[in-house]
Amino acid sequence: MNHEKQWRPDRGASAVSAERLCKRYKNAPAPALNDLSLEVRQGEFYGLLGPNGAGKTTVISIIAGLVPPDYGTIRVMGMTFQKERNEIKRIAAVVPQEIGLYDKLTAIENLVFFGKICGIRGKKLTERVQYALEFARLTGHARSQVATFSVGMKRRLNLAVGLLGDPRLLILDEPCVGIDAQSRNLIHEQLTAINRRGTTIIYTTHYMEEAQQLCGRIGIIDNGRLIQEGTPVILLQQRGKANLEELFLDLTGKGLRDS
């Protein structure tokens, strides 16, 4: 089955453009985002790193249109949520950190439901569901309830649902939390392949090794600000560090953020 995209990215053009984003949640002692700007180009695999509470999820939520910024502008593929919310939702997909699946439904029922909600119908839906099942290596478990799945199977399906609409922008919030090495490896391979075919990926993770391996460019956020951005290789050279974890601790400090 041919799942190659019709759409080709305009490499170099902006996929996500965030300018001077500010966000403070009600009753929060400090702003979640404080004048944060970042640019993700089409076809990029962009890693968003930061300690707990740094503002990663807020950035992702704003890019996904889940929360509006208090100040600043956000553009996705040149479009704004004020004018083209539904169009953005059609071309961008978010894979939440939590498992966004119905436990009581089977894998195929979940895929069909979310596919129809994305507006996919008929033969295309059948193809996309089949693709998603193959992607998640769950063809043999298509008619099993998600409640019976292991964490790894749920994570793979969670990710596969995000691919149903063939998104141009894929936003992944810690997609490999709590899974075994085999599932993680499969997800890494699949994401790399998807990115090569042109999908822009924004990826948040706490695993530095994972970010170093997958991401073409990373941005490190702390206290609601983008404190460092660039390719892993260049960042490591600039700071004279052996690996991304050392660089991360050097930039954000070793003190616990949630104690």
């Binding site: 996904a64 249109g65 889940l66 539904n86 939702k89 059609r90 961008a92 997909a93 978010v94 894979v95 939440p96 950190q97 939590e98 498992i99 966004g100 699946l101 119905y102 979310f114 909600i117 994305c118 507006g119 969670n158 649902v161 995000g162 609409g165």
Partner: peptide, 14 residues
């Protein structure tokens, strides 16, 4: 709402 389903649904064109 407490699982990721609501978040996912709110990012979909529905």
């Amino acid at each position: 709402r407490t699982s990721g389903v609501w978040t996912r649904l709110m990012t979909l064109p529905v």
